[in-house]
Structure formats: structure tokens, C-alpha cells
Write a protein that binds this DNA or RNA. Sequence first.
DNA 1: GTGAATTTGTCGCTTTGACGACGGAGGCCC
DNA 2: GGGCCTCCGTCGTCAAAGCGACAAATTCAC
Lengths: 216, 216
Amino acid sequence: MLENVSAKKRVDPRVRRTRQWLQQALLDLMAEKSFEAITVQGLAERAGVNRATFYAHFNDKYALLEYAMRAQFQEKLRAELPEGAPFRPENLQRLIQLVAENMAEVQDHCPQPRGQMDTLMEKQVKAELHETLRGWLGGLPTGRRAGKPTTDQAATIASWAIYGAAVQWSQRERREPANEFAQQVLPFILAGLQPVAFGVAPETPTAARGRKRSAA
Amino acid sequence: MLENVSAKKRVDPRVRRTRQWLQQALLDLMAEKSFEAITVQGLAERAGVNRATFYAHFNDKYALLEYAMRAQFQEKLRAELPEGAPFRPENLQRLIQLVAENMAEVQDHCPQPRGQMDTLMEKQVKAELHETLRGWLGGLPTGRRAGKPTTDQAATIASWAIYGAAVQWSQRERREPANEFAQQVLPFILAGLQPVAFGVAPETPTAARGRKRSAA
DNA sequence: GTGAATTTGTCGCTTTGACGACGGAGGCCC
DNA sequence: GGGCCTCCGTCGTCAAAGCGACAAATTCAC
């Protein structure tokens, strides 16, 4: 039905609109009631779309939620890291901050008990994270770069690490600003990526303390 | 192609949307450039609609302008005089005020030289005015009411009178508020409608001064 | 002027959305 | 239990929108 949100090759304008409307309708309704209380025909009505049209795009409301979660994060991503932004520490930091902000936004937009939602969001955001990281790691300019399985592995690890940190941050009762959070987390992620990014094993913080900035 | 804006019997949602988008695109572009400088494909692009779709709805940009002008006025009308508002002096006054406000709004929304526009707007607003007045005059509750040709005539006369007054008002360098304007004009229009509304010839102001409130 | 570029209407053809209807699954009341 | 209601998922049909292409008309630049 829906292959991939990020596969954006010449989509029929009508399709874009319909999905946009359904997505917006979902977000609107989620601010009013819990996800369980939302019905497909409620969604269709709110979106101004025929109910049958809904089923032409999504299997059920869960599929729409998946789509919406990913699309929302993707949009923020494109806005902050336009197109082929290079792999730099500051960009990675922005990415981390984005994950945190997105999570916070979702959480206070949907005050109702979010049952399935968190799981679904996690899946989609991590998928998008993975894709971005894989793009960065796979396209490194240095000749000495790791093979595909390794970059996939590294991307997966980093995705989980980032997301996990964001979850922990978002659940703190007193959280610092998202940018500070990202700044704190960045070194850990960067260190974790060392092997694939530079072809060497990651150093322990203790060992690294001797030499400074050995690699740019 | 387009039968009537006010004939709103079960329109396909897609049609409503497409026309809405084209109308909005026209208004947007008119705030930026003169009507002559606007192209059909510019309209289609701005509306996010295929150019061929434009021609499925309107013969040319002039037809769209007609439609937009009437729809805009119609919308204000429905908002201010919902559905079957009865024929009362205060409602007629609101109608007059509406014509004036609409004219002012159009004039400062489109700063560019408006060539064809004014003529077109006049045609459409007068048509809508006529329809409203005809509805009022034709449905008068008194048994003693004039036949159809007379009510049409009266509606036409009143439409022109109201519109003319609004034009003159809108071209003043220092215009009073629209509600004051409407208040001033109301008596004239009301007097002009006397024959059809009450089945008697209109009185001269002098003759009327003797008796007060002869008819409710 | 000429020639390139743009806009205009108009065509078939394909894809998508609207609509109404259907049977079935679940909840609720009596 | 049986009725009533809402929502679900799916279907077939038809209308609307997208798209590419076309010749003709126009604007624009040189």
C-alpha cells in the first residue's frame, strides 16, 4: 500500500493532498481525544475525504499514525538539515536536538494516554534516523571506509543510542533545553561512530584524554 | 460551464476545492500584480492545479474573476444575513453596509490598476443584490403584493441605487464608516421600495411629513 | 523585421477520488 | 436471547483531476 514515506519520486498531487489532509485530521483529533477513541470515519470526515479513500491509502488508523509520525519528523529534518548536509559534528548535534524536540512536541500535543503511539513513533523516528546516518556514514569521502554491513550496524547503534537518550531526557521531570541536551549527548555518539568513521576502535575517554584532536 | 455560483446543490467536494484554490490563487496574485499581468498558468501553478483543470472550470481568467467576485460577496452575505433572513429595515441596512465594505475591501486588496475588475465586480455584486432583494420582495407576507415583473423591476432599481451609492461613497477622499453610510442611504432605498412593498405609490418627503408611520 | 520563448486552448488517456451499497463484526439495551 | 446501532472493510461505477502533447497565438529580444 504505502511503500515508503521518503521515496518521493513524482507523486500525484492529489495523493499528496489526500495524505496531508488525513495526517492533519489525525493530529487535530489526537489533541481532542485518545487515539483509541478515534474512528476511521471520524478521520475521513475531518479530512473532508471519503471514507473509502482512506482505505485506498492506509490499511487502518495505525498505518496512518505511522505515516504521520514519520512524515512529521521528516519534515522537521528536511527543514533543519537541508538535502545533502555533510557529516559534521554540528549537524549530528542538530539531529540529536531534533529528535528531542520532536518527542517533546508530540508529548504535549497529545495529552491523552498514548498507548500504541509511543511504540509507533519510536519505530518511525528510528527508521528515519537510521537512514540519515547511513547516508552520512556510507558516503564518507575518505578512501578508507567501512563496508555496507558495518555502516548499517553503526547507524543502527547510533539510532538506538540517540533515541534512548531522548526518551530518558523527555521523561525527566526537570529537563534542560533541547540544545543543551544535544550538546551533552553528542560526544558519546561521535565516539561510538569512531570505528566506522575513521577505521579505528573507539578510545576510552581516559585514553583520549592524553592527546587532543587527533583527527579532524 | 459554470451555471451559477449560488446554485449549490450537492457539489462534488473536489470541484468545490478546485474552485476554492483557484479563487484564492487569484486573490493572492492580485495583491502582487495587476490583473492583466496574471496568466492562466500562473494561476494554475499557484493553486496547485493542472492547467487543463483550470479550463475545465473556467473559460479564461475573466470568468474566474467573475466567479471569485461573486463568491466573495456571497460569502459575506451568508455570514451577515444567514439563510432566509426576513425583509426588515435593519436587514436592508446591513445589506447596504455589506456592499460598501466589500467594495472598500476589494479596492485596497488590489492596489494595482484595476481595469476590467470594477466592471466585473459591479455585474456580480448587483446580480447577487438583485437576487436577495427579489427574494425579499417576492415573499412578502401581505396578501396585497405586486406581481413578478414589478418585483423584478423594484429589485433592479434598488440594486442599482445601492451599488451607485456605494461607488460614490468608496470614491470619497474622506469617507465616513460604512455603517454610518448605510444608515444614511437606507431611507432612500426604503422609500423607493414603498410601491411594491405596500402597494401604494411612494410619497414625497413633503407629503409624508404630515402623517407618521402610516404602515408598519 | 526574424526567431526563440512563452502562453494559450484543446486533445486523449490514465489515475484518483466520490459515492452508494453491501455484508459482517462488535457494543448496548431491554 | 433478539433487536438496534455504529463502525468496519470492500466493491463497482462514474466523475474529476493529472499529465503529456499538440498547433496556434502571443510576447520578447536582438
